[in-house]
């Protein structure tokens, strides 16, 4: 039994089970469905943040713009073209990746503070731009009346779209976690901690970071796309700037050691900022305090400590099991 537990990575199974339990909780309660869709959006956002930020140590803050790219791409494709709506997902992801690479390229030789500054400035300018272009983006009112998506000939009602969201988020969670453990994630983690060594080994660290930034942006933009697919509308205020700070905190709070930590963090954010009626306005404040505490005294995050607990219960048999056996 112990051998079995250590041999296979159980996280996909465990997380799918947790997801299904969540699905049961959602049921046909419309408020819960809204929460679930938001949690899915935030999860994709957090997974997108996870790749460059946690794995590669590159912090981009234009994530609200990536969400908006994904969202507007879907809304525009659905209302202005007769292409299938899924095209919007790809367009948004590609545009986000390109933008992330361009902003990253401009600051590739500078300290990470510069990337943070330029990406925040972009996010601000982009929000302003959306408001000031009514012909294109619907201006401050945004784009409403987005038709429901059709998937394999089936119209995606809210109820039907919820399980699709679960599968999508879970699938991308599995992929991101595999990315972390595979060769690419390994090199990213090395480039975060010892960039000179990775450079000296022949892999260009700036290029590596740009690829990570582009991939992360594309994943996050999917979050915007699913949000619009579910809610059928978007405007410049849908993803306000402070969401990017929440996105930064999600993997920290959930735990950086696996991609699932990012998703856990996203769920906690939704709980704190939208579902805690009693604390009202101060939910975000409480959440931020929690993050700062984690940062200062509990840097492994929730899953990190759960992992330690798990190792106590199911110790490794031999050194060999410590990592995937190549």
């Amino acid at each position: 039994m112990r051998k079995l537990l250590n041999r296979y990575d159980l996280s996909p199974v465990l997380t799918l089970a947790a997801g299904l339990a969540l699905l049961a909780w959602v049921g046909d309660n419309p408020f819960n469905q809204d929460l679930f869709a938001l949690a899915a959006t935030y999860s994709l956002l957090a997974l997108g943040m996870y790749i460059p930020f946690v794995l590669a140590g590159s912090l981009s803050m234009a994530y609200t713009a990536y969400l908006a790219f994904g969202g507007y791409a879907v809304a525009l494709v659905a209302t202005r073209t007769d292409w299938p709506m899924v095209a919007g997902y790809f367009i948004g992801a590609a545009a986000s990746a390109v933008l992330a690479v361009v902003l990253g390229f401009a600051t590739r030789r500078l300290s990470s503070f510069f990337l943070v500054a330029v990406t925040l400035l972009f996010a601000i300018a982009f929000e302003g731009w959306l408001t000031s272009t009514p012909e294109f983006s619907g201006g401050a009112a945004g784009i409403g009346g987005v038709p429901r998506m059709e998937l394999f000939g089936v119209e995606m009602t809210r109820e039907l779209f919820i399980p699709v969201l679960l599968v999508l988020v879970w699938g991308i969670g599995v992929l991101v976690d595999r990315l972390r453990k595979g060769v690419f994630g390994m090199v990213l983690r090395a480039s975060r901690d010892v960039p000179v060594a990775v450079e000296a080994s022949g892999v260009a660290v700036p290029t590596l970071r740009l690829v990570a930034l582009g991939t992360g942006a594309a994943v996050a933009s999917l979050g915007g796309s699913v949000f619009v697919t579910f809610n059928q509308a978007i405007n410049p205020e849908t993803f306000i700037l402070h969401v990017v700070f929440l996105a930064l905190f999600m993997p920290l709070l959930g735990g950086q050691s696996t991609a699932w930590g990012a998703i856990l963090g996203a769920l906690i954010v939704v709980q704190f900022t939208f579902n805690l009626g009693s604390v009202g306005d101060s939910g975000t404040l409480l959440f931020t305090i929690a993050v700062l505490v984690v940062l200062l005294i509990a840097p492994r995050g929730i899953l990190g400590y759960l992992g330690i607990l798990w190792r106590r219960l199911v110790p490794l048999e031999s050194e060999k099991e410590r990592t995937h056996g190549a």
Binding site: M186, R189, A197, T323, A326
Partner: peptide
């Protein structure tokens, strides 16, 4: 300059990549 959360084996593998 060794990557702290990589194993010895993985650190050597960096040289191959």
């Amino acid at each position: 300059q060794l990557a702290p959360d990589l194993t010895v084996w993985e650190n050597i593998l960096l040289g191959r990549l």
